[in-house]
Every structure is written in structure tokens, then in C-alpha cells.
């Protein structure tokens, strides 16, 4: 695999992963936290509903998961495609 071809595939893999993670990012905050909250109103969480929890705490916890997952996966991808820092 040529160096250029390698980094092209690497970039495509990166963009694909970012795309998936941004969908999750938007789903928990704008989705569950705001727009889809009425649909989650049946699930009660300590005096309110699941949407309220996502808006106040849940989305923050998911954000943390996303960032650490991305850092871990990308650092592995760097090595896989041979573009890591020596």
C-alpha cells in the first residue's frame, strides 16, 4: 500500500467514525434531551422522566464515553495504518 493510499483510507475511516459518533452525540442531547423528550415521558426517573435526566446528566456521561472511545480507537487506527507518531 502506497503511503498516500494508506493515509486516504485512514482519513476515510476517521471521517466514518466521526460521523457515527456525531449521530450518537446529537441523539442523546438534541434528541433524547429536547426533541424526543415527549416520547420518553413514559419512563420515569426519580420524580421526572428519562428525557429530563438526559438533558441534565445523561448526555454528559455519553459525551465522556464518546471522547474516550474515539481517542482509544483512533490511537489504534494510527498504528493500523502506520501513520502514528514514532
Amino acid at each position: 500500500m502506497s503511503k498516500n493510499g494508506g493515509s486516504d483510507a485512514y482519513w476515510k475511516a476517521n471521517v466514518r467514525m466521526i460521523g457515527v459518533l456525531l449521530v450518537i452525540w446529537a441523539l442523546v442531547s438534541f434528541g433524547f434531551g429536547i426533541l424526543l423528550r415527549p416520547m420518553l415521558s413514559g419512563i420515569s426517573v426519580g420524580g421526572s422522566d428519562l428525557g429530563f435526566w438526559f438533558a441534565q446528566q445523561g448526555s454528559i456521561l455519553v459525551f465522556l464515553g464518546i471522547i474516550f472511545f474515539y481517542a482509544w480507537r483512533m490511537n489504534a487506527l494510527d498504528r493500523e495504518y502506520g501513520v502514528d507518531e514514532e
Binding site: 438533558a55 454528559i60 481517542a71
Partner: peptide, 23 residues
């Protein structure tokens, strides 16, 4: 509830920072 925006907004930006800019 309406001011949950502050909570989601000021943390959600780090996801963008980590994936779209920082590295």
C-alpha cells in the same frame, strides 16, 4: 429544565473539539 442548554452545550462542545479540531 429549559436551562439544561447550559449543561449540554458547555460539555457537548468537547466532543466536537476532540474529534474535529484538537488532534
Amino acid at each position: 429544565y429549559d436551562n439544561s442548554s447550559f449543561l449540554m452545550g458547555w460539555t457537548g462542545g468537547y466532543v466536537l473539539l476532540a474529534m474535529l479540531l484538537a488532534p
